[in-house]
Design a protein around this nucleic acid. Sequence first.
DNA 1: TTTTTCGGTGTAATCGATTACAATATTGTA
DNA 2: TACAATATTGTAATCGATTACACCGAAAAA
Lengths: 335, 335
Amino acid sequence: MVRIADVAKLANVSTATVSRVISNSGTVKKETAEKVMEAVKKLNYQPNVLARQLRRSETKTILVVVPDITNTFFSEVLRGIESVAIQIGYQVLLGDARNNAESEASYLTILGQKKADGLILLTARSNQKMLEEISQDYPVVLACEYYEGSRLPTVSIDNVSSARKATEYLISLNHKRIGHISGPLNVVVGRDRCKGFHQAMAQHGLSVDPSLVQEGEFSFESGFNLMMKFLALEDFPTAIFAGNDEMAMGAVKAIKSKGFKVPEDFSVIGFDDIKFASIFEPALTTVAQPTFDMGQKAMQLLLKIINGEELEKSQFILPDKLIVRDSCKELTING
Amino acid sequence: MVRIADVAKLANVSTATVSRVISNSGTVKKETAEKVMEAVKKLNYQPNVLARQLRRSETKTILVVVPDITNTFFSEVLRGIESVAIQIGYQVLLGDARNNAESEASYLTILGQKKADGLILLTARSNQKMLEEISQDYPVVLACEYYEGSRLPTVSIDNVSSARKATEYLISLNHKRIGHISGPLNVVVGRDRCKGFHQAMAQHGLSVDPSLVQEGEFSFESGFNLMMKFLALEDFPTAIFAGNDEMAMGAVKAIKSKGFKVPEDFSVIGFDDIKFASIFEPALTTVAQPTFDMGQKAMQLLLKIINGEELEKSQFILPDKLIVRDSCKELTING
DNA sequence: TTTTTCGGTGTAATCGATTACAATATTGTA
DNA sequence: TACAATATTGTAATCGATTACACCGAAAAA
């Protein structure tokens, strides 16, 4: 292992000078610097980051905890985070919570151990109070998910209004009997999308049949099963707003399994616009979240906090976008 | 910040003793240990991992470089890696190469900086020689992808025989005029799958029409475009072996766009068995790779190398599995 | 000429743990 | 009781960088 002392000896200067050169911080005479650089090159010296980190007590590493790394929605956000991180010399430590609040919390010890300078959470299912305490001591940013009424720095879309928008789209297509296949209501985004659904219905004077609102998990299977429930009712809904794209696909699959067609017999709208939404048949009409941007924004925000900069505000709402494809259709009188 | 010295003072012992207690390494009297543990608890002491790392010169961190984090195939492997890592007290530093050999290589400096104890590469597109040199100095394991004729420790399936198996399945369905939509041939797995295809054809005395082998990228769009090329030929193939599932889906889409049906008019087989393969319509017949297992195995292997254990062998071939679904059909005389 | 000023460099303390080695306490043995 | 063996604990060096502070010499100011 080549140490800074080796370089110093070869260049015939002190370690302090070498350090100044490689961090180009201080005032070093040009010729001296060249001598040092030469020695660095000759010895193929790379500073030991651990030592630097210890001394400066910073790791240039951040921790990102995702609920499910195999969900492309989150991996796209992650990519946004990482792209910014790399640019500014940070590395990303990955925590995959596997949809488990406990394991989510277990990653947080990494901060206390000083293995990371900050934390971005793409999931907010563990104890809110604990997290708020942690954010007193360490830089924390939430992305995608969030806590209600919390002051924690957050980057996300406005799930309530997006859900309203999705529902209103169905309403604009003349649908009146609309069902909602909701994500888990103990997760904010599930709750907020459900809320948006109800708001839109109320605003347009439409009543919501309680049997047409079903809570499930953000998975294909769950979407399938809940749609099957709807299809067991006397009086079908004509359109379905699903909590996310996977659920929407499950719902479509269920509809098809009964011999019906989408969008002819049922309109289905999803949420997230995952990679596969456009490949699916029918191509899914859905609300797109700016995944990559959210990741980038979250990282930029975290960096500001790490650097102790003042935040102009702490909640960032990014724009969503309704993507109209082929899974919804206007309800005609015969419909 | 609570330091070990604070704990030592409160417990009225030396820092050495505290250190011994928290790493339960040495011989410490029971009562002393209890005293120390009490002080630890009272002060809520957490060792500064950086200091430990510097002294022990180990980071308990590994670096995983993936070609594309938004590809569920790789994120499943990653999950396998991470699950083992967490269990044994390691953390995973993520490098997303974004399908770019240069950026892949840029992550390797992290090793030299001592920010990670080892490296798992899920992509092998950068300079082989360089990597082999690196593996002299640092623990390295390749997973999924590999270099031909290299002694680098590797975990993967046998892509040649898997591709042969896939092709033979088509042959067993009476197909004779079979096309191959290949992944990039500058990537080993692309090459090996192509090789397996040719082997199977030759072994069954079938000739390969050169115009029925097209090289593309491992993407949906690429699969679509290349299938369109086939569909522009005078003499169609009756079956297609695609380099991976995304390409297979693209091919199916192209076929449908021309008004043909899968599997009635064309049989299509994919590769990887990604999450979406079963949701796609028709559900994709494909070759499943043991993603999670490969990740686990790779991590276990890396750990052995880190610990300086002797490896019984360096190339691990895991079993693949042909998953028969609905995208292939026996060729009848009417074709 | 003398005194400041400051660019450029070196010395040594420091970050916070681990651990080699030394020292002391305790127990066992003769 | 005396001495050896062992258990337990402490002292201080160490990991490899960064950086506060001191210092020197040359240029600028008085």
